[in-house]
């Protein structure tokens, strides 16, 4: 009978709902924040030419896509154009440019589409915001829908009690019966 406490509108149900919203929100914020934090932290310009390794170049090239080669990041692409772009990255790194400055350089010249991660401003901000809006909004509609389904259940008593495995009596035996019934 413990189930009744979880009925729609009950205190526990409300608590569950709020917890769910908070969880979903937390998960999404959690997904967004570390990446935001990352953005500002790069880039110290200590003058002079630095020794730049292929790994340093790859780290940036991984997240740049030239406009010609479809969906192939710069670190993988084999064309001459992409090799030239990699050289540009190397030069910029040697001159002490930060990651963000190199991304900006390419996006100023060729547009945001060369970046694996579109900037969080202007039109492409939409891209970042929409999932954060759509999914929680969907969750709200979905929980409303579930609640309505549940509400009609309270009015209509359509299921014989025998079909409801009682919590206390639901031993392995009943579980097995249920399994057998389901076999089709």
């Amino acid at each position: 009978m413990g189930n009744r406490e979880w009925e729609v509108g009950s205190e526990k149900w409300q608590a569950l709902r709020v917890t769910l919203y908070v969880l979903v929100l937390a998960v999404f914020l959690g997904a967004a924040i570390p990446s935001v934090a990352q953005d500002g932290s790069e880039g110290d310009d200590s003058g002079l030419k630095k020794a730049v390794t292929a790994n340093d170049v790859n780290k940036i090239a991984k997240r740049v896509y030239c406009p010609v080669c479809e969906s192939t990041p710069l670190d993988v692409c084999q064309t001459q154009a992409c090799a030239d772009w990699r050289d540009i990255i190397r030069q910029k790194l040697e001159e002490g440019a930060s990651e963000q400055e190199i991304f900006d350089y390419f996006s100023n010249l060729y547009g945001d589409r060369v970046l694996a991660e579109p900037p969080r401003e202007g039109f492409s901000l939409l891209l970042w915001l929409l999932p954060l809006i759509i999914v929680p909004l969907g969750a709200v509609f979905f929980s409303r829908y579930m609640r309505n389904l549940k509400a009609t259940a309270v009015q209509s008593v359509s299921v014989p009690d025998t079909a409801v495995p009682d919590a206390a009596a639901s031993s392995d035996y009943l579980a097995r019966i249920e399994k057998e019934l389901e076999n089709n």
Binding site: R63, Y65, P73, G111, R113, L115, A116, P131
Partner: peptide, 13 residues
């Protein structure tokens, strides 16, 4: 202007 969504965005979302 043509846009592009790279793997990091998918992964985060």
């Amino acid at each position: 202007e043509k846009g592009f969504v790279g793997p990091p965005v998918y992964e985060k979302a």
